[in-house]
Amino acid sequence: MWRRTVPIMITFIVGTVLVVAEFIPHKPFGNLGEDFSLYFDIIAVFAFILGGGNLCRVHFSKVYRKKTDWQFSIVTLLGFFVMLAAGLFKIGNPEGIQGDVTAAGSLFADLYDSMFTPLQGTMYALLAFFVASASYRAFRAKNIDASILLIAAFVILLGRTPAPSLIADFFAGAGITFMATAFNFVPTLTDWIMDVPNLAGQRAILIGIALGVISMALRLILGVERTYLGSDSK
């Protein structure tokens, strides 16, 4: 009962109230709907703490048991506690403990700029190299479908840069007007691909996803879908 029925009831009540509040935005549903959303926002913060707690548990255990690369876990824990202390105690904050935690000049802001930003930014920047490598190795025009994909990609890659107008100017200077016209048309074609075929495809995907989300939400609210409760939920 406590492990299965209560959570299913909570999901049902909360989900139903929020749905009803959309249609009857008056007391008690309107207020309850807003309250539940507000509580949700607050509980989300506990999820951050849970994440931090879990991180400490995993890495302390790794260090304690001297598992492979345990030395790097010390780096993780050091980074975690230094950043946490800088933020929670607002160390070096020009406005003191009452100021904005991210205020310029605070240790928290400096660590954000000198560690968080380069680390997170570069992790994603690496993808440029892997996209290029994958394009060379895997992007093959093996059939009509792949060829269409390739052509659309080429038009977008070219059309979303100043290249077409530069090339068109070159051809116009050389007196090859039809090529100049063709390259001048690339940005228009790019806009058309985005506004028409891309729009149609994305809209079909969007409608498909919406139907999926709606049915999943219904399954959750009605208690049909219980996998989020874990293995002993049946």
């Binding site: 926002d41 607050i42 989300a44 913060v45 951050f48 703490i49 994440g51 931090g52 991180l55 890495h59 790097f72 876990s73 780096v75 993780t76 824990l77 050091l78 980074g79 975690f80 506690f81 230094v82 950043m83 946490l84 800088a86 933020g87 929670l88 935690v101 928290f108 660590l111 954000y112 560690m115 968080f116 680390l119 997170q120 992790m123």
Partner: peptide, 20 residues
């Protein structure tokens, strides 16, 4: 590894001062 530690602490701090 530094990234993992720093990010977790960043989110916790922002949640603490911003919402909690």
């Amino acid at each position: 590894h530094l990234f993992v530690g720093v990010s977790a602490a960043y989110w916790m701090t922002m949640g603490f001062w911003g919402t909690m």
